[in-house]
Write a protein that binds this DNA or RNA. Sequence first.
DNA 1: ATACGTGCAAAGTATTTGCAAACGG
DNA 2: CCGTTTGCAAATACTTTGCACGTAT
Lengths: 154, 154
Amino acid sequence: MAAHAHTHATGSGWKQHVLASFAHEGFRAGGARAVVVELLAEQDCCLSAQEIFDRLRAGGRKVGIASVYRVLDQLAQMQLVQRVDVGGGVSRFEAAHPGGDHHHHLVCDDCGRVVAFEDERLEAELDRVGKSLGARVAAHDLVLHGACADCSQK
Amino acid sequence: MAAHAHTHATGSGWKQHVLASFAHEGFRAGGARAVVVELLAEQDCCLSAQEIFDRLRAGGRKVGIASVYRVLDQLAQMQLVQRVDVGGGVSRFEAAHPGGDHHHHLVCDDCGRVVAFEDERLEAELDRVGKSLGARVAAHDLVLHGACADCSQK
DNA sequence: ATACGTGCAAAGTATTTGCAAACGG
DNA sequence: CCGTTTGCAAATACTTTGCACGTAT
């Protein structure tokens, strides 16, 4: 596989930011909340609730999947994670960064792989379009469907 | 509300195109297939399977929801309709036009309304990005989340 | 007439909710 | 200590599948 993946994990700055937000809102950050945030902070790309659940369990943590969903939902409402809908009836989630470092996804309809990418000019157009609609755009979710670089060669 | 909505229904050219495709593939276009295509052809924006089902029933047609899903799935695979994932675990569908007239969606997280829009420059950027990924992009699905023009005024 | 297509009902997934026990502050 | 948070299990919502009947060709 090709790819100069995203250099690093999502960065621990995000984790700090989330914990601070929790503290600020008076939420406790014990068990499930903490481990979900920790796991998300280590990811380079989006995960489904089930994947998060499985990894936490594999790591020996005794979380319930309901808690995973609850935490993700809460984080999404606080705009600390971005819901990514790649289709197939499954929601995926990833850390939402305050400033930039925003990325989108290409879903290979052939092999199912999800590839992340970012593009500054595209971002600029998205901003412009949002404004021109007179709406207050809080987030955008772009998914390209098709055959990924590998599959389209075959 | 602002907006120079889409001028007209989706255009009957699409319906013809679909029926021709069916004929070409040797598919029969009797009952459910025909009415789902007919309904989709009249729409300006995406509908969920349930909405399609309800409208057909309201119109006196005795279709089953399973057939609606089957037809939509088939049309999607033939690239005659575009699946639109606006989140909330529900898939929506709309006629996919061969050449242009492509649009995207803004979902108001406040009132739930879905607003369609199109933008040529954005389209151009999307094309460029798709190519730069080396992938064969068959479709793209862009959803802006936020407060629509109406809701953001309140 | 004969497959293909359809409606119904039952099954399958993803996600949400109710509740008693556990735990952080 | 007390109220939030959690894990479990049951419930819900959307979508898919199995099967016998209807229908276009």
